[in-house]
């Protein structure tokens, strides 16, 4: 395993997904907030994605955490890797607009990136839609540098690519 099961930060607990988190994820991914990440999607596809986030931990020993402050999740954060040949990718999303603007995503992402660095993980990339100004601001706070030469993936054609400082 490359990442711990639970990470605790000043305000947050990052933990494995539970079934009670599904409703919040479905509400997010069937709604307008997912325009920059390929959504909205039909419910059955959203549920599959949710299970897939849990399942990646089994095969890779790292994955996405539920962002919580004690109750059900209000976002996810962590490291995704689809094909073995893809670089591991840092991802973060707040599912609920009312949680924005309070630094939760940055606090969560920084904690995961620190944990990843402590395990000696390879450099991470991040892909952000050009119009996602909130995440583009976060990229600077997290110390990621843009990879100008990188191609946007087909599932996110409008993305800019960033590299973690260890690259």
């Amino acid at each position: 395993m490359k990442l711990p099961a639970i990470i605790t930060t000043r305000r947050l607990t990052l933990r494995p997904f539970e079934l009670r988190d599904l409703d919040g994820y479905v509400a997010y991914y069937t709604g307008p907030r997912t325009a920059g990440v390929g959504g909205p999607k039909p419910v059955y596809q959203v549920a599959e994605r949710f299970l897939a986030m849990a399942g990646q931990w089994v095969l890779r020993g790292f994955g996405r955490y539920a962002i919580t402050d004690g109750g059900a999740a209000f976002g996810h954060v962590g490291v995704m890797q689809v094909l073995d040949t893809d670089p591991p990718e840092m991802t973060w999303t707040l599912w609920d607009a009312s949680r924005e603007g309070q630094g939760y995503a940055t606090e969560a992402a920084r904690a995961v990136m620190d944990a990843w660095a402590q395990t000696g993980g390879v450099p991470l990339i991040a892909r952000i839609d050009r119009d996602n100004t909130a995440s583009l601001r976060m990229v600077e706070r997290l110390g990621l540098k843009e990879d100008i030469a990188a191609q946007a993936p087909e599932f996110l054609p409008n993305a800019r690519t960033f590299l973690s400082a260890r690259a």
Binding site: F17, E48, R49, L51, M53, A54, G55, V58, L59
Partner: peptide, 12 residues
């Protein structure tokens, strides 16, 4: 995604 969701189904 289908492979991962198959595993995640057992987990959850």
């Amino acid at each position: 995604g289908a492979l991962l969701s198959m595993l995640g189904h057992w987990v959850l």
